[in-house]
Design a protein around this nucleic acid. Structure first.
Length: 420
RNA sequence: GGAGGAGUGUCCCGAGUGGCAAAGGGGGCGGACUGUAAAUCCGCUGGCUACGCCUUCGUAGGUUCGAGUCCUACCUCCUCCA
């Protein structure tokens, strides 16, 4: 792969930006992409109400695909989610109900329009749901026409399955069938839309190649597999989850400010890699940012955060988040745009217990945790460290702006405000 | 169907002798150092109306002053046999 110099704009771009982990046939795919009628898809589970930052890489790939003249398909896994993906999860996921899946699907859908142009044109993105064909499959027909092409021996050797077997963990039959359905999807998308490439994270390699294989046996013509590295930090931690939960892409599930903060806190070693993967900045600009030494790299992190946030929350919200951060962390002034929580004015007049206040603000999960944080010096009111867990907030704590600033650690702030 | 083994703090792994809010990791959070970074060091990591009370060790009972630890039944998983 490294020896190969891609001719197509697509592979050229993907390679330069660090998207490529494995490819089933680099040269073949390159030729196909260069021909200008490449249709490719990525499948998305409907297990949650929103995608998270871990999904971002594949979405960006679809974006570049469209930009370089290809047609992207975002396949909603409305059908496969009814079965469950065995990819390395420790426990079998509880199966989602049909209503949940439907609701998740509609919620997930929203995010793609920020990255892709949908429509009926030749290069417009489309968004089918594999329930359209999987739900009406007839078991006998499926076994006869498709099932006989799958080798159990091979499936057993796949990491996702092998791991579960080695660790003596539950692997149910329906989960086992997941890859068969995913392979079938690929073939079906080929028939319906001329799709010849499936992309995904490196953990999907086995599933994707199974689809390529099935296509060959069923006579689809050559199919291709392309995987990306999983989004991890330089220290090896998986991205996408924080203590508060996943870093959601949907704007209604994670604020622009929090999203901006997430990327602002990127490790030094990851900045350039992330700029390439999740922003649209030109490579020479990224190279310039990457050359910044020492603490100057913070400038690059701010740009990373703002560009990333602009993609899903809009330029204006991203800039607002940047401004809020600038005021809070650099100017040391009160940023009115910090997250807010309201309490009744009467409650403040009576004295609002400090522990309850932090719980109310959502900065700690329980009063016990608030107590612990006070012992550890982690709670501040109006930037003053608190040491008395019996203290109460009163109207005297109100800043001139009419709010009380509560902080957990150095980074998390909430403004407490009286409701009228 | 038979024999044996296993299920531990709702993030994960994992010790556990009848006195256990339960060893030790990882992860996470907080503090120090910094640059809202990494590395390192320190603290914390069930809940509450909090020097006490309540809920936790697959589920439900039982023995006991007292059970994660003993007994019974049940559920789930693993291994060997049929």
């Amino acid at each position: 792969m490294s020896a190969f110099t891609p001719k197509s704009d697509l592979l050229h771009t993907l390679e330069q930006r660090g998207f490529i982990h494995q490819c089933s046939d680099f040269a073949g795919l390159d030729a196909k992409a260069a021909s200008g009628d490449l249709v490719a898809y990525v499948g998305y589970d409907c297990t949650g109400p929103s995608l998270h930052v871990g999904h971002l890489i594949s979405i960006m790939m679809l974006h570049w695909l469209q930009k370089t003249g290809g047609k992207p398909i975002t396949l909603m896994g409305g059908g496969t989610t009814r079965v469950g993906d065995p990819s390395g999860k420790d426990a079998s996921r509880p199966l989602a109900t049909l209503e949940q899946i439907e609701s998740n699907k509609n919620s997930i859908r929203k995010v793609f329009s920020q990255f892709l142009t949908f429509g009926d044109g030749r290069h417009d993105a489309i968004q089918p749901d594999n329930a359209e064909w999987l739900a009406k499959l007839n078991y006998i027909d499926f076994l006869r026409d498709v099932g006989r092409h799958f080798s159990v021996n091979r499936m057993l050797s796949m990491d996702s399955v092998k791991l579960r077997l080695e660790r003596e963990q539950e692997l149910s039959f329906i989960e086992f069938n997941y890859m068969c359905l995913q392979a079938y999807d690929f073939v079906e998308l080929n028939k319906r839309y001329g799709c010849t490439l499936q992309m995904g994270g490196s953990d999907q390699w086995g599933n994707i190649v199974t689809g390529v294989d099935l296509g060959r046996r069923l006579g689809t013509g050559q199919l291709y597999a392309l995987t990306t590295p999983l989004l991890t930090t330089a220290s090896g931690a998986k991205m996408g989850k924080t203590a508060q939960g996943a870093v959601w892409l949907n704007a209604d599930m994670l604020s622009a400010y929090d999203y901006w903060q997430f990327w602002r806190n990127t490790e030094d070693a990851d900045v350039v890699r992330f700029l390439k993967l999740i922003t649209l900045l030109p490579l020479d600009e990224i190279a310039r940012l990457g050359a910044l030494g020492g603490s100057e790299i913070n400038e690059a992190k701010k740009i990373l955060a703002t560009e990333a946030t602009a993609l899903i929350h809009g330029r204006e919200a991203a800039q607002a988040a940047a401004n809020t951060a600038q005021q809070t962390f650099e100017a040391g002034t009160l940023a009115q745009d910090l997250p807010r929580v309201e309490i009744p004015a009467s409650q403040l007049r009576e004295g609002f217990g400090i522990l309850a206040a932090f719980v109310k603000a959502g900065l700690v999960a329980s009063t016990s945790e608030a107590r612990r944080q006070i012992k550890g010096g982690g709670l501040r009111v109006n930037d003053a460290v608190q040491s008395d867990e019996n203290a109460a907030l009163t109207p005297r704590d109100l800043l001139p702006e009419g709010v009380i600033k509560l902080s957990l650690g150095r980074k998390k702030h909430v403004l407490l405000r009286c409701a009228d």
